[in-house]
Amino acid sequence: MEIQDIIRPENKVYSAPELLDQNVHMHYCPGCSHGVIHKLLAEVIAEMGLAEKTVGVSPVGCAVFAYNYIDVDWVEAAHGRAPAVATAISRLWPEDVVFTYQGDGDMSAIGTAESIHAANRGENIVMVFVNNAIYGMTGGQMAPTTLVGQKTATTPYGRRVDLNGHPLEITNLMAILDGTCYVTRQSVHTPANVRKTKAALKKAFQNALDKKGTSVVEVVATCNSGWKMSPEKANEWMAEHMFAKYPLGDLKDVK
């Protein structure tokens, strides 16, 4: 069989999402969860026909360059301020769908106030929260979501509650706010989980279109280079340790 026989359109089982820019190389480490989450967002926005009415707000953190990859309009926010930036765009362009893409530092440390208050006001935005329990971009320091005992650059002997406090379950806090309509925790470490995360993102974007309030989609993720593990090992470690503290599933889904 010749190659030309194989690559015929009717044989196609997968294609890169049209909104994922193929002309740039992603800067993410091999094995990083961000690439998969970006792909899902690109697919969801395209499938829902929202490419010409979506504005993304990228964070400071590893995903700062998200604007280079997904082919929608973007605003790059100061560290932690994405929900405030998104609030204004959403209110000033009420027909647009606005989403934030935030890491654990952005969402649950420096930007806690902005995140909680945007959600509490019930802004019609989607907050995508990637929780890998570490600061990836700056070189693997402790995040608010770092597990007790977890070693990072700033907790070299493991996180201690007496020194560093407890891991922060910011998503649980979001769930109790009246402004949120949908709060869920997902992961992308297996094909089944990838499908569930995609469905969650779709629901969140639909909620924004329907003006139902704030949707928060947490994705519990790996940072294999920050964790100093192989991608495969990182997935195993996540399933074993992270899910105990951050169990997957919907925390809130207002019909």
């Binding site: 926010a77 100061a78 301020r81 405030a84 930036v85 609030t87 204004a88 765009i89 902005e114 208050h117």
Partner: peptide, 8 residues
Amino acid sequence: AAINMVYG
């Protein structure tokens, strides 16, 4: 937050 809303 206010100035970042202005930024947005």
